[in-house]
């Protein structure tokens, strides 16, 4: 056990799995950085330094710099997974799915079904997502709802360093294709993380706060915001349950429905856009299966239906914040008072 950043936890997960299983390889744009150049052959270790040190340890056969052409190397990772390797491929920003989605959507995700259950594709796609980096519209999106929509893929949103290590190890060991979303604003966030390898199973939500009044379901980085809001609200006598589903596919519907049944109120926090996003998805789930336990309308806290803006002034108001979550919880609770007043 020692303090590790989100970045270090992800790096350690890859290192330990590559040590454990030589079929695990890593590829992506500048995952080493410097291939073919005269200088340092591990110059970057990924654009955020997440893969730093893996090239020197495992060599150029297992840590492969690629050309900057995503459809071919993401597809090559899929083909390698289909034929016996366990590749980790880094899609630098999830926004770049636009240039390689066919290999994920129509190839990787479909192999097992189309081939009658005979294909095993242990592919891990690591990708950066999220706003807050002043990176504007093409490097800041939260496109996990798009991937969640597709049967055959598993989608993982680690909310902190502990979660990141255990979920990435599970992703690498998993025999199905997994898209692993790393929030770029969290790489320096530190916490206690075991030194030993461990795997966190998919489809098992983590209840990070337990309360009686409102259930907050939040995804990825938003889990931390929801926790902060819950702690602030606790000082005002409002107790919240916070659910981190960990994976959007598979989704732990059981824990969500159980905790909503206990509190009778739901706020969903999602950094993605509101249309066809996880927030609407969870709201639909609860409306369909737990309608009778609801004491108030569901509130959704999401980013707006707008591209991520560049200007810090705009981006800061774009991202769902702790204050918005607190206001949503207050509004949900206020419903009781309004009904009582009528």
């Amino acid at each position: 056990m020692s303090k590790k950043s989100y970045r270090q936890a992800i790096n350690e997960a890859m290192r330990q799995e590559m040590e454990r299983d030589e079929r695990v390889i890593l590829m992506g744009e500048d995952v080493a950085g410097g291939t073919g150049a005269a200088g340092d052959q591990d110059a970057w270790g990924g654009p955020m330094g997440v893969t730093k040190g893996l090239r020197p340890q495992f060599g150029p056969d297992r840590v492969l710099d690629t050309h900057l052409a995503e459809i071919s190397f993401v597809g090559a990772a899929a083909g390698a997974a289909l034929t016996g390797l366990r590749p980790i491929v880094e899609l630098m920003f999830v926004d770049f799915m636009g240039v390689c989605f066919d290999q994920i959507l129509n190839q990787t995700a479909k192999f097992r079904y189309m081939f009658g259950g005979k294909a095993v594709t242990p592919l891990t796609i690591r990708t950066m997502y999220g706003a807050g980096f002043r990176a504007a519209s093409q490097h800041s999106q939260c496109l996990y709802p798009v991937f969640t929509h597709i049967p055959g893929l598993k989608v993982v949103l680690p909310s902190n360093a502990y979660e990141a290590k255990g979920l990435l190890i599970q992703a690498i060991r998993d025999d199905d294709p997994v898209v692993f979303f790393e929030h770029k604003a969290m790489y320096d966030d530190e916490m206690e993380v075991p030194d030993e390898p461990y795997a966190i199973p998919f489809g098992e939500a983590n209840v990070t706060r337990e309360g009686d009044d409102v259930t907050i379901v939040a995804f990825g980085r938003m889990v931390n915001f929801a926790n902060e809001a819950a702690d602030n609200l606790a000082r005002r006598g409002i107790s919240c349950t916070v659910v981190d589903p960990r994976t959007t596919s598979p989704l732990d519907t059981e824990t969500i429905l159980e905790t909503v049944a206990e509190t009778g109120r739901l706020v969903v926090v999602d950094e993605a856009h509101p249309r066809c996003g996880m927030a609407g998805d969870i709201a639909g789930l609860v409306a369909e299966h737990a309608f009778d336990s609801l004491k108030a309308p569901i509130k959704l806290v999401t980013a707006p239906h707008a591209p991520v803006p560049f200007s810090p002034a705009l981006e800061d108001i774009y991202i769902p914040g702790v204050d918005k979550i607190e206001a949503a919880v207050a509004a949900v609770l206020d419903h009781d008072r309004k009904v009582a007043a009528e």
Binding site: Y162, G166, P194, E196, P197, Y198, A199, I200, N206, V207, T208, R209, E210
Partner: peptide, 14 residues
């Protein structure tokens, strides 16, 4: 909750 999570953290170790 954290006591429970600590047990799980141990159980998840390889």
């Amino acid at each position: 909750a954290e006591m429970v999570e600590d047990v799980l953290k141990f159980k998840r170790l390889d």
